[in-house]
Design a protein around this nucleic acid. Structure first.
Length: 349
DNA sequence: AAATCGGGGTG
DNA sequence: CACCCAGATTT
């Protein structure tokens, strides 16, 4: 592609403009103050599919509780996942825990991208990010931000299946533009540009440090790139029960087995299926307490919550159902949405 | 290649 | 509501 070729030819000028902007305008983020390998690793795991703003409070709490690889490796998985509660994609927490245990068992820290790629939770993006930032390794990151920037710079109108596929196609261009003298700052600058200037909607082209290199900006249609296939969202309904024991106010919850692939160790308000009830029998109009909505990847869930008297429970109670006293609720593992629903309904009662 | 991860922000 | 976010792993 012609635009990409011209861009690569002016790589040194592009790098200088980008790096100059980054050093003057970068946000002050916790892992950029007194940087360390541990802070870089923890931040990169939390930032997988999660925006900076969302993970900031979790990062502070995490560093406070587990300040380094040794304390993380020594912690129990239960403690680690509990600290992650609310951030979602809990496999990241389990992988970060496994990673810490793998690293402390090694004679020395791996310094190359290929060595990091062998470790748990480390893929193409994270290996490049960690080794370029912490060790100055010459590896270009390609995340959602970089895909958007490169597609616009080159005005690449390819209709991609998804971001992963686009990233694969654009990796050679990312590598060609990498600043080998400052790979860590170059990578962070690309992502910072995508997060604060070259945004998906209403990009701030007038203040962009690399607009002179951008074919999409010249054409006046930056938002046309990248061109990605539309996602198909599937709607699902889950009827849940709000069931409290009169004697001590304990709440009935369903706990998924800790070894399960999905929802491992998570507590939820029991669904009709958990209870062995017909959803339409549980979902009586006169017992509706609230209807909640949430999304996860390609699903949109609608979850009506119905009051249920303990006397209405089938006997014996199915495995996985547990009574949790109000004082114990904070200690059990629960997703962010469930935590908020339970708090709201307890307060209302 | 496509599905999964039971999150959350934003226009 | 639709789409994206400093993606990785499993099927």
């Amino acid at each position: 592609m012609a635009a990409a070729k011209a861009l690569i030819a002016s790589a040194p000028e592009f790098q200088a403009a980008l790096l100059g902007w980054y050093r003057a305008h970068r946000r002050r983020l916790p892992w950029r103050e007194e940087p360390s390998l541990y802070k870089t690793v923890v931040s990169e795991f939390m930032l997988q599919q999660t925006q900076v703003k969302t993970m900031l409070p979790y990062f502070a709490r995490w560093l406070d509780a587990l300040p380094g690889f040794p304390s993380l490796a020594a912690a129990s998985e239960e403690e680690v996942v509990k600290l992650w509660e609310g951030l979602g994609y809990y496999t990241r927490a389990r992988n970060l825990h496994k990673l810490a245990r793998a690293l402390v068992a090694l004679p020395e820290m791996p310094r190359t991208r290929d060595a990091w790629l062998e470790l748990p939770g480390i893929g193409p993006y994270t290996s490049a990010a960690i080794t370029s930032i912490a060790f100055g390794a010459p590896a270009a990151v390609v995340d959602g931000n970089v895909v958007r920037i490169l597609a616009r710079l080159a005005a690449d109108g390819t209709a991609w299946r998804d971001t992963t596929s686009a990233g694969k196609d654009l990796t050679p261009l990312a590598d060609a533009l990498l600043n080998h003298a400052e790979p860590g700052d170059h990578n962070q600058a690309m992502m910072e540009l995508g997060a604060t200037v070259c945004t998906r909607h209403n990009p701030l082209c007038t203040v962009c440090p690399v607009r002179a290199f951008c074919a999409a900006c010249r054409a006046g249609e930056p938002e046309a790139y990248p061109k990605l296939a539309a996602k198909v969202i599937e709607a699902r309904t889950v009827v849940r029960a709000w069931c409290r024991r009169a004697t001590d106010g304990a709440l009935l919850l369903h706990k998924t087995d800790s070894s399960a692939r999905r929802l491992a160790g998570q507590h939820e308000l029991p669904s009709a299926e958990h209870l062995g009830l017909d959803p339409s029998a549980l979902a009586r109009k006169d017992t509706l307490l609230a209807t909640k909505k949430r999304g996860i990847t390609r699903f949109s869930f609608t979850e009506p919550i119905h009051a249920l008297e303990p006397a209405g429970l089938p006997r014996p109670i199915s495995t996985g159902l547990v009574w949790v006293a109000p004082a114990e609720l904070d200690g059990v593992l629960m997703s962010g949405p469930h935590r908020r629903w339970v708090r709201e309904l307890i307060a209302r009662a």
